[in-house]
Design a protein around this nucleic acid. Sequence first.
DNA 1: CCAAAAGTGTTTGATTTACACCCATGA
DNA 2: TCATGGGTGTAAATCAAACACTTTTGG
Lengths: 224, 224
Amino acid sequence: MASARSNSAARSNAAPLVATIVVIFAVIEGKLRVLLVHRSSEPEQGKWALPGGRWDGSESLDESAARKLREETGAKGVYLEQLFTTSNLDPSRPAAVAVAYFALVEANRVRLRQEEAWRPAWHCVADLPDLAFHNNRVIEQAVARVRAKLEYTNIAYGLLPEQFTLRELQETYEAIHQRPLDRRNFRKRMLSTGIIEPTGAYRREGAHRPAALYRFTSREPVFL
Amino acid sequence: MASARSNSAARSNAAPLVATIVVIFAVIEGKLRVLLVHRSSEPEQGKWALPGGRWDGSESLDESAARKLREETGAKGVYLEQLFTTSNLDPSRPAAVAVAYFALVEANRVRLRQEEAWRPAWHCVADLPDLAFHNNRVIEQAVARVRAKLEYTNIAYGLLPEQFTLRELQETYEAIHQRPLDRRNFRKRMLSTGIIEPTGAYRREGAHRPAALYRFTSREPVFL
DNA sequence: CCAAAAGTGTTTGATTTACACCCATGA
DNA sequence: TCATGGGTGTAAATCAAACACTTTTGG
């Protein structure tokens, strides 16, 4: 059955299926996590997968990915970038392409959709189950890209609130790199690149010196 | 009119069109050039455009791009990488996506197809005409990517023959960066990264000291 | 006064840049 | 012997990494 469909789909005038999928990242409890939905129907029933859906041409691919992101998390205006496109995700459907995106969202602004059928949930990227449609590979590439871009862009703005302490920023970087950073060097680097600046405000909490608050100098994607 | 078409195409079960396009680079006469074909029919008749074609699902996207490249240049086994995918190239066809690739080929191994209808030809990237389907933007991004990757990968292997002199390698780098490099520092850098090694052979030509020949230590894509 | 996190500088080594002279060859 | 391009080294500047003590606050 699947194979009959597959063969006919491979014929040259089968209409290809185009889908967008989104790797949505957030840092929660010091861990880099990714939003997955549970597949309640075939194919790959019972596995976790990246959120996504069919593209119908009524909007651009970027808009489609942004809408998907909004539907899943309520987030808008956050960092969203195209990753790559593949035709190999679903062997039962060779005439299909998936355009993958990744997004960085601020964990505590997110309201997950409460759908019984999908059960969206955050999963730690360091410890993922076997996912549907080779989504493990998609996520790996997304993580690699975020890591690389963290070094020469301001993309971390997507993960943090308007104002934040240097410690919070550093914990975000550490969560993504999965290794500790030197506090002094980190501060120097961040301030010298000019991607952040002090707001002048301080946050008092607990029995210790208050922390200065910073903001990103730009909340648009910027290269260094 | 355009809007009527756009509206109907925007309906959810219009079959999307998927195409692959390829930015094929070569360095010829010290200039970075790109292969373009002449559009002999609508839309965008009379303009130059990137080679490409409809994808039918009978092969993967990568294979489709590789085949396109082979058809245009005869080149195989060369460097080929996906760039990005866009749905905005042809306003008259909103339900279409183009998956763009770029390739690096060795100029003097290429045999261009001699087709009257298409007239494939090399164009200097520093001086392009106004192209069909926003292809200027696609090429800009491809150039940016090649420049960046030149610094931390061995992709230049795609542009050079098996054996080459350091001067030839440097001229390739200079063509892509469009600025001169210091000979001594260039040599040091290339050898210290280990992406090239001397073959032991020399090339005698003209009234001067013979140049040592080098090869890439790997002709597979390698990151540094 | 104690615990907890914030804030701050200096030294070392590595990397990058700038720069000028000798070498091998063919004519 | 001369013209041509091939080959080489060093000094200065910049950048990255390692590292420890003082400050401010609340309890």
